[in-house]
Amino acid sequence: MVVLAELVFSASDLAHMRFVVSPMWEVVTSFRLQNSASVHPVHRRWVEQVRPRVKAAGLDRDRLAELIPPSGYVPDFLNPAPSGPAPTPSVELAAILAAPVGRVRQDLDHLEHHRGRRGPRLRSLYAEPRARLVRVAEEIETYWELALAPYWARIRAVLDADVFYRARQVAEHGVGHLFNDLHASVSWSDNALRVVRRQRTLSRETAGTGLLLVPSAFAGPGPHTRVSLPEPPQLAYPARGVGALWEPRAIAGTNAIAAVLGRSRTLLLTELETPASTTEPAPWSRALVPAGGHWSPGICRASNPLCPSNRTSSTVSNPSASEGLRSRLSVAKTPTSGTRSRPCRAALRRREPVTSGGNQYAVAVAPCA
C-alpha cells in the first residue's frame, strides 16, 4: 500500500530546517546495504572489500545485525538527532548511549511488530537497555573502523558537495525548488512537504519542529524518514554524485608532483583515490623528501591538488581538491629570521632521518587537514 505522507511547514518550521552530515545514518544505511542479498552495482566494489571484514568480526550475526534488518524498520534510537551540522561518530555514539530506556524499549517493541520475533540478544537489550547499549556501541564502533573510516574522506566529500549544491538551490530558487529536486518521491506544494512512502503516515502532529535534511551515500533507492518527538523529523535522501563515488579519478598535476616525490611515490599517492584494504590510507601517507626540502613555487603551483591556493594560518587547503588527495603533504610554518613564510616554500616537518645515495632524507607524514 502506497501512502502519501504530508508534513506541513510553518514559518517556524522553515526557520529550523537545516542540513546535517551524520555518520550514524551512514552506519545504518551501509550496514543494511552490505548485509543485503542484492547489491547495487554502484557499491559492489566497496561491498566486496567490506563484507569479508564484517563477517570475520562476527558483526553479521550479532546485535547490530538484529537491530538493522535487510529491510523494514530500524530503531529510531540508532539515529539520534544531531545537534550540529557534522557530528563525529563519538558524539553520536554518546547520544545512543544516553537514549532513554523507555525510548529503547518502545523502538524494540516496534521492531518486533515488524519482524514478528525478538532474538535472544535483543531480549537482553530490552531487559537491560542501559547495560546492553554499551555492547551495541562497541559493535557500531568496530563496524565504523572496518567499513567506513578507511573511506570516510571520500564519502564525506560527496556529502559535503551535496549540501553545498542544495544550499545554493535554496539561495537561488527557494525551498520549494530544493524539495522538488530532492527525489522523485518528494514534492512541495501549498506549504507542505509530501513524501510517497509505504505503510506509515507522516504529519506535523507526530513530528517535532523543523526538519533535518541528511544526505547519504548509501540510502536508497528512496528517502528514509525518522520521527521521534520531541526531536525534529529527519529525512535522509540519496546524495548527488554517488554514482562516481568509487570510480578511480584522474589526478591532475602528477608530473609536477613526481618531480618532487619521484614517480613511484606519486603513483602510491594517487592510489588513495580508490578503495583500499583494511589499513589504508595510513601506509600510503608517507613520502620521502629531502631533509631540508623546500618546494619550488613553480612545481607547487603546477601540482594544485597538493599545493592549493587557499591558506589558513600555517596551512594551505583547497576544499575543491579531490578527497583522496586530502591526505596531502602538510606545510609547516618555519620562517627564517627576517623572511616571511610563503606557502609551499616552508620545510616539511621531519620524521625518521634516512640516508640514501649520499643524501639525507626525512620521512614526512601528511595527515588530512
Rank of each mutant, 00 (worst) to 15 (best):
A252C: 10
S314N: 13
I299Y: 04
L212P: 06
T225D: 14
L268S: 08
S313A: 03
P275E: 06
W284I: 06
G293Q: 12
E273F: 04
S296Q: 04
A258C: 06
A287F: 08
L268A: 13
R311G: 10
L306G: 01
G262P: 01
C300V: 01
P308S: 04
G241S: 07
V289Y: 10
C300A: 03
L272H: 06
L261V: 11
V316W: 09
V316R: 14
L272T: 10
E273Q: 02
T312A: 07
Y237R: 00
I299D: 08
T312Q: 12
T274K: 11
R249I: 06
P308G: 10
Q234K: 15
S313P: 05
A252F: 06
R311Q: 00
S277G: 05
S313V: 08
T279P: 07
E273R: 10
A291W: 02
A219H: 10
P305H: 03
C300L: 01
H224S: 15
L306W: 07
P283V: 01
R286N: 05
T254V: 09
S296Y: 02
A219Q: 14
A236P: 06
N304E: 08
A276G: 12
V214N: 02
G253N: 08
P297S: 02
A250W: 02
L267Q: 10
E271S: 14
P290R: 03
T270V: 02
